[in-house]
């Protein structure tokens, strides 16, 4: 008789069998490693200028060429990964915490409080993500901390809606009703009975939305509302490259490719894991 697997083992083996999730996960981990070990991986100082090597195409010395200050593109891309990942991951985490809390409260205390929260969420969702982000950045000013705050504000309504929707269905389940019937207090019901059941779906969404957050940051940087130069970010590198697009397209193309691959890896990971955990799609 085969050994019985625990749930974690089952999930793990399903993950290894799901090619999309696996490839996405491997790439995401590699990009994370690049960001962490940037000082050791980058061949040059990302800020070092070399006036004799301006706009050099890719060569053995500079694999991805140089920009109009003679700075090494590869090194700048490697360092730039830090800004994207820090902003992407921390703003989604903050947005997830705030949004889930709001969604849980609104879903459980329907009536006045719940209504008020959800109408507030509706209002925030009246603006496309990017337009809301641009407006908030204009108020707060562009630096790393404010960008994290801005993007987490944009992410909060998404998580609130998601959590709210799931809670509405869970609140009618027998085990929740049973807990209410025996007099378990509301915070405990939310914590012990509802939260563990929505965590999976929230994490899948969070993985997908890290990509959205990274793209928002890149958009803001391209407009000039991101982390300011000379600190390299992928967005401000593309912006800088656009000015010399005809003569040195590699600056924009390679920086953009880094954004694309990063977002793609998070999307593949999130997509794959969702297919895995969605009971409707299982076994197909």
């Amino acid at each position: 008789m085969p050994k019985r697997m625990t749930t974690t083992q089952k999930m793990w083996s399903a993950f290894l069998r799901n090619r999309t999730a696996l490839i996405g996960g491997i790439i995401a981990v590699m990009i994370l490693a690049v960001a962490i070990f940037a000082p050791w991986l980058a061949p040059y100082d990302p800020l070092r200028q070399d006036p004799y090597m301006r706009l050099a195409p890719s060569s053995v010395k500079h694999w991805l060429g140089t920009d109009d200050f003679g700075r090494d593109i590869l090194s700048r891309i490697i360092w730039g990964s830090r800004v994207s990942l820090i902003i992407g991951i921390s703003s989604v985490s903050l947005g997830m915490i705030a949004g889930t809390l709001l969604g849980l409260i609104a879903g459980y205390y329907r009536g006045k409080v719940g209504n008020l929260i959800m109408r507030g969420i509706d209002v925030l969702m009246c603006f496309p993500d990017l337009i809301l982000a641009i407006a908030i950045t204009a108020v707060l000013g562009a630096n790393l901390g404010n960008l994290i705050l801005t993007i987490s504000i944009v992410m909060t309504p998404r998580f609130a809606r998601l959590a709210h929707g799931i809670v509405l269905t869970l609140a009618e389940r027998e085990y929740v009703l049973a807990a209410q019937a025996v007099g378990v207090r509301v915070p405990r019901i939310l914590r012990r009975h509802i939260f563990p059941n929505i965590l999976g779906e929230l994490l899948v969404a969070a993985t997908l939305w890290v990509g959205v957050a990274i793209r928002l940051e890149a958009n803001l940087a391209f407009i000039g509302l991101g982390v300011q130069p000379p600190t390299p970010t992928w967005g401000n590198m593309i912006k800088q490259g656009v000015d010399v697009l005809i003569n040195a397209p590699w600056i924009s193309v390679y920086s953009g490719l880094s954004i694309l691959i990063t977002i793609l890896s998070f999307n593949m990971l999130g997509d794959g894991v969702r297919d895995m955990t969605d009971p409707k799609l299982r076994g197909t």
Binding site: R215, A218, I238, L245, S252, G256, L260
Partner: peptide, 22 residues
């Protein structure tokens, strides 16, 4: 569709400019 979901609009625009305008 995964590519379309991942690519930032401005980057796609730049790539199209590179191909169809330059």
């Amino acid at each position: 569709s995964l590519l379309g979901l991942s690519v930032p609009a401005f980057y796609l625009g730049i790539l199209l400019i590179l191909v169809f305008s330059i």
